[in-house]
Write a protein that binds this DNA or RNA. Structure first.
Lengths: 205, 205
DNA sequence: AAAACTATTGACCGATCGGCCAATCAGTTT
DNA sequence: AAACTGATTGGCCGATCGGTCAATAGTTTT
């Protein structure tokens, strides 16, 4: 076959990145072959090497994209204006939770980055965490948040529960909640219970 | 070289399983080759196939072992006798937390099993969770635990925070807590804050 | 219009993959 | 003592791995 010009190399790059992300997320880095990425994206292996150089670099670009996506999400949550009233955080937390629910690929990608111990992964970014701790420190001095805990730990607890829920709910929901497996209601019920416990536990005393 | 009789096939099996566990945990299933397992365990590839049949079956045995280890741990925590006083749970929680801290391999193995969506992974075991929810339901009827939340969610929140802490603390601690990276004190400080928030949030009201 | 550039292909490379097989030898059974 | 069983080895297999390279053909630059 002759080489066909798409006249849209950027579009080709995107197609490759999409296919790579899907496969990497499903099967992991080592579990994915360049041939599979090539087949799924409809181009040849050689072209992928032309655009990205190596499998590792492709993986790096895929991770960087997912990181940007996640960073925007988390930043959005932590930036929300909450004047003295901590319960205003509820909406941002719900939004964050719903976003993770709607994007399972993102959740799996986070798990993979944690396993890699990637320095670029969200929790490792000072900027992302500092953002939230500053807000919470204000809340502490305003008396809206209990002052005897480290704000970073408060953020961590929420992030851990949200991420871990979507990482494991597939396997958790089947055994514990005896409702429908695919029930989206299960998500909301967990979020509700978490908010109850979290905000009561975090209240100044 | 002539085949050397160890006269201890069980010991050989163990050596293979240990090496396999170490490599699988470090690099994942697809990222580990049989040759590497063979080299690390000091036997030949062929012998591994003789004992375990295939790479998948070896992986299965490694997972099963880790599952048993973890199940015993979680069962131990959930079984602890707590007569009406919920705070007695603190000791079991600390023990569970310390155990995870002492066994990083186990934590990574859990992450891998979650990613696999393995049906055998602990959260999926009705027995393990039912055990805890029954206890917590007793606590609810005794008025020791708030009654407006699902006991399964209470357990989940604790497990999520403990597991996620050790999954991500390597990368989390470097950016947020400006103390020593290897500080074991960071673990205790997080556990302390978590217990404060968790038990206050979970108190009957 | 000639030259340079680049997106794209198919053929090919050595290395490594998981796995198989025959041979060897120690211990056990007959 | 002969036969059998099972632990262990090294050699080998076809398939696939990530990656390279020359060729081709549109596009842009000169």
């Amino acid at each position: 076959m002759q080489p066909i010009r798409t006249n849209d190399p950027e579009g080709t790059r995107e197609a490759i990145l999409d296919a790579a992300k899907r496969l990497f997320v499903e099967r992991g880095f080592a579990g994915t072959s360049m041939s599979e990425v090539a087949k799924l994206s409809g181009v040849t292996k050689s072209l992928i090497h032309h655009h990205f150089g190596s499998k590792e670099k492709l993986w790096g670009e895929v991770k960087a994209r997912s990181f940007d996506e996640y960073a925007a999400l988390q930043k959005g949550m932590l930036l929300t204006r909450k004047g003295g009233d901590l319960s205003l955080l509820t909406d941002s937390i719900k939004a964050y939770f719903d976003f993770l629910k709607a994007d399972p690929q993102l959740v799996r990608m986070m798990s993979l980055m944690f396993l890699d111990g990637d320095e670029n992964c969200p929790l490792a970014q000072d900027e992302l965490i500092e953002l939230g701790t500053q807000r919470l420190r204000e809340a502490q001095s305003e008396g809206a948040l209990r002052a005897d805990v480290d704000p970073a730990h408060v953020i961590f607890i929420f992030l851990a529960c949200a991420l871990h829920w979507f990482e494991t709910k597939k396997v958790f929901a089947t055994s514990v909640t005896h409702k429908d497996l695919d029930a989206p209601a299960a998500d909301d019920e967990f979020l509700g219970d978490f908010i109850k416990i979290f905000f009561d536990g975090v209240r100044p005393r």
